[in-house]
Design a protein around this nucleic acid. Sequence first.
DNA 1: GTCTACGTTTCTTATAACAAAACAATAGCA
DNA 2: TGCTATTGTTTTGTTATAAGAAACGTAGAC
Lengths: 254, 254
Amino acid sequence: MQGNEYEKYRLQSVEKSINILNLFYDAEELGAAEVAAKMGMTRGTAFRFLTTLEMNGLLIRTSKARYRLGLQLYSLGQLAYARFSLPDLSHPYLARLMEATGETTFLGISDGSTKVIYVDRVVSTSTLRIDIRLGTRITAHHTSIGKSILAYQSEKFIQHYLETTDFTPITQRTISDATMLLLELEQSRHPGYSCDDEESETGLVCFGAPILDRTGQSIAGISVSGPRSRMLENKKEILISLQDTARAISSKVI
Amino acid sequence: MQGNEYEKYRLQSVEKSINILNLFYDAEELGAAEVAAKMGMTRGTAFRFLTTLEMNGLLIRTSKARYRLGLQLYSLGQLAYARFSLPDLSHPYLARLMEATGETTFLGISDGSTKVIYVDRVVSTSTLRIDIRLGTRITAHHTSIGKSILAYQSEKFIQHYLETTDFTPITQRTISDATMLLLELEQSRHPGYSCDDEESETGLVCFGAPILDRTGQSIAGISVSGPRSRMLENKKEILISLQDTARAISSKVI
DNA sequence: GTCTACGTTTCTTATAACAAAACAATAGCA
DNA sequence: TGCTATTGTTTTGTTATAAGAAACGTAGAC
């Protein structure tokens, strides 16, 4: 069910409420007028959504009729995470990969849309090191994990991705159109790893590899991330460890 | 806005969708028929909710048309948590309190309903120690943190609590009616600490104290939890450290 | 093979949700 | 201090929509 046939099942107000929650990715606090503007609603309507979400703990109201994400979301999120076994399973591998490479290692999964969510990480012990807050969502093609996941998705999914994704570049090297991305995915499949060379942040280089289920579909990806100089210097060894680790985790996936 | 006047603002389908998510506290996986039964809907209606929630990443669909919590919730939850500054602020205090007492220490907040959410913890280094998964929600009056928070809430809130809470006992010593709870709250206010003596789990004793904002309202609570023997043996020292810590955190609250 | 339970789909209509608009409260500024 | 602009809150009528009923498809149990 991708995009089209689903339309007939969508409960619009439920979807709007989720979209309102998602507005908080870009804003710490919002009031009814702002939500109304961003959602294309009247203030009255936005007010009802906010009130309903607040009464159920998904938002909290600060002093002056402004809203923030509520801790009910934290509670549900922790539960979702605890029941998602992949991180448990792969953490020891990530830790070993960090030790082998000396660089920070990540586990990311696709949230089904066009983003990748970072769900586990083992931070490098180097003074100069990379770190990203767990739970962070990043547009897939900006990251090596995202590219590795995309590379092993169905043609249909990739098509959908190309149609719905914003290709605004965020650094000078960011992939900025569909052709470029398709080429890059092709290049990820062939050697079995993907690369983010300063495409998400200047100075940052990541190598990624997919976690595949037994059907060969990608369900997640891992990456090694570090400063450009070190990453390129040790590229060969990092790639070997990375791919070994990805295969080892994949083989454990149910 | 407590309970009554709010009725006129509730968006019913939004609220239903949240209630469906909350069903997953008690079940790891649910299908449309189960959701329909628990929610008093038809299967067709439940199916629409599930589909909508799935398409937005709040649920994921497992092989055979059954659903689990999705990692989109994890992502939002981590964001909610990261922006909630109380844990940052109080973590060093919790750590010191653990060192002083040797027992696991917790920070819990009220989610606005009748539950307490555990948002931070420093685990004891003893062999016999207590641990609870972060994000866990427990009915307030089953816990020392909950009692401490309730004790410093408005009369109206407590009344609402008594009306909406289920007093089914979970151990032999659980508070099992309103009179018992009111007495207990009175006893929490007076010495400034609350106690959970095997009321949530046999063998487990917790002492709790409230974090108060400058108006004297409770916004959270901390607790020290350990095996009954040790907790009673060191009661006096634990209570002093606990109350000092609670006051110190309270004084830092904005 | 039959039965049962569940997922999926269509159709229809009661009603929930929304826009519009008025009122209230607040903040900024003269 | 009082005026104005902005935002939050509330009400109302209309319309879009949510959801029941019911049929169909499918899968597993016996």
